[in-house]
Design a protein around this nucleic acid. Structure first.
Length: 570
RNA sequence: CGGCGUGUAGCGCAGCCUGGUAGCGCACUUCCUUCGGGAGGAAGGGGUCGGAGGUUCGAAUCCUCUCACGCCGACCA
């Protein structure tokens, strides 16, 4: 393609509302433009990349035995009412009605539609297992769309749904999808990890997320330095570390009028942070001994809300108590709480249970106890895993220690079981002519998000550096002074034809621009390979080559260029 | 959905406090020079200052309402 025929809308300046690097570069490179919050138009250059990602996903899904379908974006309410999600979904689902006042929604996902299809089309166990996928636009009315296409309201997703007669068959397809996903992200040229994930409200036994590692990622993932254990931190189990030491201090009541936070306690009173306890008050469930429940976490640890709300004594979803509620129940404000003489139900994190000589609020405003010890000063409350794992924690599988990195969730596979097939009566006849409810699996890839994630992982101060597999063009062909030098023009045109004929996608910069502009634009849009044609080179019978990541140019003999590129791009 | 903030040319911004009829840089058009790392000069085009109402002789500027967008938080099969 010639740049003169391409809408190459590059920007020198960074649009002010773009926060993360991929969003900035996608705007600057002219890949996308915003239409409204969370809604983006893909420009020709961006769409090329999107299509490349799609093609790889499609190939690997086909190879893994899935069949492609295409379902409507607009879906009737009846299906969602049948699965029970019409009421569950909330404002995230955009609803509308047609001219006959029938309710519809923009599909945030397609479990209902596919289940409806398959219950009508598949009658026999002989037709199973089967796996169907589509690459389709989804709409989720995010509370807060941000980061460009990374977290847009309208986005492109590959979603697949598998149907089985039993769990063993589902396990098999699940494994096949796990492998297919690994191949897809490997082919895309991305540094990724598959991690254990929370199955969420949807239940099911097994779930993995695929994360592209990037410092701007919204998720934290933990993985062992000595095994292949990897999990979302929200899920990773925090094991108890060490044993409780014997008391060495007396418990004393200390005036701490200005210490409202753990940080204050550490700064003003010299308490080591790992000898302090944070007391968080949440609402209890019906089975709790009190209306409010106190959760004890070490000062330097973070409460894991997901773990907490899974405890029977705690209301789910988790709800923090307000200051008034706390004062009413405890008699002191949130800055002075602690387990000593606390009048409400209390649960301690595992690492809290092994603390000694620690400090915590005295449940009297402006006072803390120092030198507290379990059993001697107060009984040890029930113990549970309440906190997020931190770097250096032992790996839950017993091998090695945890490292924590940030990732962008680009894929998620999980086992649905019979949630939808049961609610929507999707069954088949088995060998004995008996009706059995189908078992389902579900597998998603955020196609448009992959594009942003790839940039997060592959860029420098000049712009994007596309992995070869998804670059909009493989080669940038830059003629120097073509509009003055007839030899350069002829040579470039010839090269363009040759390279194109050899099957390469070439972006030929035939604009009447200065060299600097061409270089800067090609680097910004991230074309991985660059060939420069100039008078100087023609005299020597060479052209210049530079890989996007290379430090400098190299001369390549004109006659062996094709051969050279064949090895470079192999 | 709560807190905060911002809306002035395609993009980035100034002007607003202290009302007097809109400006800078980039981009765009034409010409001259330059011509291998985002060139220099000259001349141009483009804005109902987010919208509505109000105060005033006069509103981008002050007041009220409203819409949009963004940041932080909460939320996220």
């Amino acid at each position: 393609m010639r740049t003169s025929k391409l809408l190459l809308s590059t920007l020198k300046e960074t649009p002010s509302d773009a926060e993360i690097i991929s969003h900035q570069l996608m705007l600057r490179a002219g890949m996308i433009r915003k239409l409204a919050a969370g809604l983006y138009t893909w420009l020709p250059l961006g769409l090329k990349v999107l299509h490349k990602v799609e093609a790889i996903v499609r190939e690997e899904m086909d190879k893994a035995g899935a069949q492609e379908v295409l379902m409507p974006v607009v879906q009737p309410a009846e299906l969602w009412q049948e699965s029970g999600r019409w009421d569950q979904m909330g404002a995230e689902m955009l609803r509308m009605h047609d001219r006959h006042s029938r309710d519809f929604c923009l599909g945030p996902t397609h479990e209902e539609v596919i289940t409806d299809l398959i219950r009508n089309e598949v009658q026999s166990y002989k037709q199973l297992p089967a796996n169907f996928y589509q690459i389709q636009t989804k709409f989720r009315d995010e509370r807060r769309p941000r980061f460009g296409v990374m977290r847009a309201r309208e986005f492109l997703m590959k979603d697949a749904y598998s149907f089985h007669t039993d769990q063993a068959s589902l396990d098999e397809t699940y494994e096949a999808m796990y492998q297919a996903y690994s191949r897809i992200f490997t082919r895309l040229g991305l540094d990724f990890r598959a991690v254990l994930a929370d199955t969420g409200a949807i239940g099911g036994s097994s779930s993995h997320e695929f994360h592209v590692l990037a410092s701007s990622g919204e998720d934290a993932i933990a993985f062992s330095d000595n095994s292949d254990y990897a999990a979302n931190v929200e899920l990773a189990e925090a094991l108890a570390v060490g044993e409780r030491a014997a008391p060495s201090q007396e418990m004393e009541l200390v005036d701490t009028p200005n210490a409202k936070t753990i940080a204050d306690l550490v700064e003003q009173h010299g308490q080591p942070i790992e000898k302090t306890i944070k007391t968080l008050i949440v609402h209890g469930s019906e089975v709790a001994e009190s209306k409010l429940v106190a959760l004890l976490v070490r000062g330097d640890h973070e409460l894991n809300e997901l773990k907490a709300e899974k405890l029977p004594a705690i209301e789910s979803p988790l709800r923090m108590a307000t200051e008034e509620e706390i004062r009413e129940a405890v008699g002191a404000g949130p800055g002075s709480l602690g387990p000593v003489k606390l009048p409400i139900h209390c649960i301690a994190d595992r690492s809290v249970a092994v603390m000694s000589d620690f400090s915590a609020g005295a449940n009297v405003d402006g006072k803390h106890y120092f030198g507290i010890n379990w059993e001697r000063d107060l009984p040890l409350p029930p113990v549970a895993d309440l906190r997020n794992v931190v770097e250096g924690d032992p790996s839950p599988d017993g091998h090695g220690h945890l490292e924590i990195k940030r990732g962008v969730e680009v894929g998620h596979i999980f086992q649905l079981g019979q949630k939808y097939s049961e609610a929507m009566s999707a069954g088949v006849l088995d060998e004995n002519g008996k009706n059995i409810t189908m078992t389902m699996g579900c597998y998603g890839i955020g196609v448009s998000r992959v594009v942003a994630a790839a940039i997060e992982q592959n860029h420098d101060d000049k712009g994007i550096i596309w992995p070869d597999a998804i670059a909009p063009f493989q080669i940038a062909l830059l003629p120097m002074n073509m509009h003055k030098s007839e030899r350069v023009r002829e040579e470039s045109e010839k090269l363009y034809e040759e390279l194109t004929a050899a099957g390469y996608s070439v972006l030929f910069d035939d604009r009447k621009e200065r060299a600097g502009v061409m270089f800067a634009d090609m680097e910004l849009i991230g074309i991985p390979h660059r060939v420069v044609v100039g008078d100087k080179g023609i005299d020597k019978g060479v052209v210049e080559y530079k890989g996007r990541r290379d430090e400098s140019n190299q001369d390549v003999a004109r006659d062996s260029l094709l051969e050279f590129l064949n090895t470079k791009l192999a």
